[in-house]
Design a protein around this nucleic acid. Sequence first.
RNA 1: GCCCUCAUCGUCUAGUGGCCAAGGACGCCAGCCUUUCAAGCUGGAGAUCAGGGGUUCGAAUCCCCUUGGGGGCACCA
Length: 483
Amino acid sequence: MKPETSVRVRFAPSPTGYPHLGNIRTALFSWLFARHHGGKFLLRIEDTDVARKVEGTVDVILDSLRWLGLDWDEGPYFQSERLHYYQEAASKLIEDGFAYKCYCSRERLEMVRQEQMKRKQPPGYDGHCRNLTEQEKSQLEASGIAPVVRFKMPLEGETTLHDLIRGEVTFKNSVLSDFVLLKSDGYPTYHLANIVDDHLMAISHVLRADEWLSSTPRHILLYRALNWTPPQFAHLPMILGPDKAKLSKRHGATNIIDYREQGYLPQAMINFMALLGWSLDDKTELLSREELIEHFSLGRVSKTAAVFNKRKLEWMNGVYLRQLSPEEFARQGTPFLDRGLPSSVKRPLSSSYVRQVMPLLQERAKTLAEIPQLGDFLFFDDIEYDTNLLLSSGLDAKSAIQTIEVVLQRLQTAKTWDASSLEAVLRPLAAELNLSTRKFFGLLRVATTGRTAAPPLFQTMVVLGKEKCFKHLASALQRMSVL
RNA sequence: GCCCUCAUCGUCUAGUGGCCAAGGACGCCAGCCUUUCAAGCUGGAGAUCAGGGGUUCGAAUCCCCUUGGGGGCACCA
């Protein structure tokens, strides 16, 4: 048996949708907390809502956690496979007088709610079945109605919890109603399943989103009724969408796994999410996984909800992208390149060519997904662009034509096709032609890449190769001949 | 409607009574570097610390009220 001080935390998502940034931030903090304290991190799937269950989400949850490297020590446990525990607890609660069966129809509950709304009263169960006589009970039992089990909330008194982040929070019991523990299909509600499992799994600390704070008194009361010691609670600040509302599908690509598709690096995601509601000090922004584990503490978790700022994520991802070795960048970028390049580009892509291309893009990409659009021209046999671009640096068509003709001549004589040789030929040529490097290289850039913004000219020309450069240059001449 | 909770630059945040006429980061602007873009470097704009009352010699920091935001009040989690 582990000493009671040993840290055991869990991440307990429900498979009703793909996990979003907020969900995973909770997982991250729990994981960091466990790793920091040398404790255990468990994974539990809260699949107690048969109706809302979405097929395939468990795989996505596991995939997301693995992608981010949030490894778990136990589980995944599935609550749907543990129904007997909850049913047992419910029976015990009924036996001990802390819970009762309720036979009210959904229609009646709906009516009660409407009535309460109309009278501007707090919605909640009215306790109708709380004090049924034995005769009424057996009658209802015989009628074949499948009952739910409700917790018998104390009518008075208050419940206080000591939250590790919020401090002391007190609720009046009278504002809480007799909530459902066991549904009529025999499945538990979150409230029951969560406390039964946390107890059985010896969870020491419950880290969960702030939205659970107001349910916590119910949980405390349940622990008490079952005569169990509750874990410590830490309610994490929520992560909000740009409209400052709780993160949801409405906010677009918030599913964590989408970020992988969008070319974000797990280490950037981890670093970024850690800073959403937690900070090390007044200046540190970049922290490795190891540093996060070393420094993470609940004491430095903020109380305020955070709006997540995608721009900052992009910046941070760029930082991590540039930190990769060129080989690693090429390795990770290749699938994105392959996917993003038009089908007219011959496949499979030449890996040696890709390796040459990638260093030109690494410094410029904020996400791996940007790679194709950043460097597609390097893969095209013919480049397509607006011919006027050739004149964008300020030359007229005639001198542009002359310039390129000279360039073609001179490059013909170039012995080797590397960046310094090209520079040795071209830079003096600019002076010779009495052109500013800006104009001269600008013209060549458009002619060889079809763009006004591209990676450095000489390196680009080297990667393109002599043959293709000549081809592009020649085609630029042709384009301008009709101007 | 009731309950809970939060409140520092647009956003993420530092700040736990004096070191704060509020620091860092993203973004923005300018300059430098430079063949363009990006990166990098330097500088700048940007917060009467939501408002109002207290407490205190002294408050972003403590207390109260107001306002605003968020969350909850299901046989959903």
